[in-house]
């Protein structure tokens, strides 16, 4: 069944169809939430909340990019969660397992046959990117995550964030500039393959 048929079926109340959409999009939504929140547990909560509110509001989807519509629910859930977090600031900074130990090798989506060195490189890169994203204001962070990490086009980002395209362009440029400066400071720490070259502005 294609996506449109699944959406129509879910709009008529078919939970199975909706759950098939959930399975198709849950990695993308979770990764977006994780980048916005900077925390796996909070991201998982926001993702669950996003799918629940998406199901309840499904009939307000009137066509267009379903992916952008879903990203809107997850960014809204993240904003809500961040507001709550601001009121009660208690966040674990590293992903912890049940024994409260830091998880050494998170479940990367990439090829599972990665060597330990490659996994380490990915972890370094992941930390550097997250560190720099966390330093951006959340409105800029969401734009750059949706456009550059999730690969949405400008119209989809504008729709997902309910913001005019002109503002998206401006925020994306500003966010890229700031990330450039921040990531430069990781130049020596990052694996050679991920290093930013010294540009004119470095």
């Amino acid at each position: 069944m294609d996506e449109i048929a699944l959406i129509h079926s879910a709009q008529r109340g078919d939970l199975d169809s909706f759950n098939r959409l959930v399975l198709a999009y849950q990695d993308q939504l979770f990764n977006t939430a994780r980048r916005i929140m900077g925390d796996d547990e909070l991201a998982a909560d926001a993702t669950q909340e996003a799918f629940l509110s998406a199901f309840r509001a499904l009939n307000s989807f009137r066509g267009g990019s379903f992916r952008a519509w879903l990203f809107r629910t997850v960014t809204n859930a993240c904003y809500d969660e961040l507001r709550r977090k601001q009121r009660r600031p208690t966040i674990p900074l590293e992903p912890l397992n049940q024994n409260e130990d830091e998880i050494e090798t998170p479940g990367w989506l990439a090829d599972p046959s990665l060597s330990p060195e490659e996994q380490l490189e990915l972890t370094e890169l992941d930390h550097a990117i997250q560190h720099c994203l966390d330093r951006l204001p959340v409105e800029f962070r969401s734009v750059v995550i949706l456009a550059d990490i999730q690969g949405l086009d400008y119209a989809e980002v504008a729709s997902a964030l309910h913001t005019p395209i002109g503002t998206i362009k401006s925020r994306l440029a500003r966010a890229r500039l700031r990330l450039r400066e921040c990531l430069q400071s990781f130049r020596e720490l990052l694996p050679a393959s991920f290093r930013l070259e010294n540009g004119s502005r470095a």
Binding site: Q26, D27, L29, F30, N31, R34, R35, D40, A44, T47, P106, G107, W108, L109, A110, L122, T123, L125, D126, I129, V144, D148, I149, G151, A173, R176, L177, L179, R180, L183, F194, L196, E197, G199, S200, R201, A202
Partner: peptide, 18 residues
């Protein structure tokens, strides 16, 4: 500069949903 930042972000590791 912009091209490099975008390329790096596109390589940002992605995780499976827990």
């Amino acid at each position: 500069d912009l091209r490099q930042v975008r390329a790096l972000l596109r390589q940002a590791p992605k995780r499976r949903a827990p």
